[in-house]
Design a protein around this nucleic acid. Sequence first.
DNA 1: CAAACGCGAGCGAACAGTCGCTCGCGTTTA
DNA 2: TAAACGCGAGCGACTGTTCGCTCGCGTTTG
Lengths: 208, 208
Amino acid sequence: MKSAGTRNRTFPERQEAILKAACGVFVRSGFHAASMKDICAAADMSPGSVYRYFSSKDALIEALIEADQARWTAAIDGLPIEKGLLPALEALAELGLQDLENRGLLNLWVETAAEASRNPVVAARLRESYQVLQGRLASLVQAAQRSGAIESDTDPLVLSCLIFAAFDGLILRATFDPHLDTRALARGFLEFIGRALGSRTPRKKGSR
Amino acid sequence: MKSAGTRNRTFPERQEAILKAACGVFVRSGFHAASMKDICAAADMSPGSVYRYFSSKDALIEALIEADQARWTAAIDGLPIEKGLLPALEALAELGLQDLENRGLLNLWVETAAEASRNPVVAARLRESYQVLQGRLASLVQAAQRSGAIESDTDPLVLSCLIFAAFDGLILRATFDPHLDTRALARGFLEFIGRALGSRTPRKKGSR
DNA sequence: CAAACGCGAGCGAACAGTCGCTCGCGTTTA
DNA sequence: TAAACGCGAGCGACTGTTCGCTCGCGTTTG
């Protein structure tokens, strides 16, 4: 018997279980193509029960997106910033690549972006999240510039935007090119950026 | 002249008209959310007639994607490569930004990527297209390196991939952040890359 | 010249199916 | 017992697609 008792699992626990099941379905089919029936089957629940925990399919999608964002925010918060800019970026890249290799999560990311282009609520959430993430990266860049570790010609905001954009683009590309060697490319990206930032002339002050 | 008794419009012309109407609807609603009814209304045709020109909704989507790709291929073919790498890139960026400002096309691009993550046919087409585009860019980079115009430390493939990725990422970002100053950022990207490539010493041979 | 005809573009109601979602009811828990 | 939980048949709306049909033009025929 499946002791599906009330107190066997708490409300949030059941929510998370549904979310996890839904995530799998969304990854496989995309947000729109995935049907509630599939999600219910994946969660091993009836529609009525699922709708007890999420008021609508959209609510489910939004919850999923929010969870993903929380994950990323936590990740960037845990960055080893004390080791300098490049190492921190490497760690961030490593984290992103792990997602890539966990196949499917990147599909979800693209799907999320597509959703954002239609759903203003999702768009706002994503925008806000990016602003926070990019802001932190920019301040790291600025700190490195002030300390003289890297050149100062580049606007920190532009650079941080470039970095995010490059990795997002890489993820996008990996979506339809599964054999792409993302790891090598990411490393190449970082090498290029590092060189551009003047890590080749680490101690010289008169850079220009 | 023509054998078949077409009316005042030829078959391809009608196809294109439908495609154009469909494009508008897709931009507004996305591929999945757009209904055939909407498309028919936009094209000012009945379903029966539309299905005379396109065998299915998917066929319509694929045709649209293909047209968009052809546009890009033509664009990169018309690049002013003789003026050097950076100017060519600037021209490419300008072209991309015009798309951005033509509001909507970027949504379609994200939608296309999302579609590719599920539809292998679309994915293959996109992959192929990117390989061609990136290949040409890489050969431009290589030529510039050989001529000594830019530094030779960076793998041309990595650099061209980085450039495409950065701009794709920028487009993606613009999707959910309409107020983003894409023009300024694109310029910043190119400045950064140009500086990294050592274009500030344009004529000197002993670059590194 | 007029009349008859064939062709095929265009039509739109109807189809079979799927969608997200609801609601009444039996079961379990506190 | 009251309350929370879980169920799943069923709802109305809408989907992409089909098919029997109309009708006007271009050609052939008388």
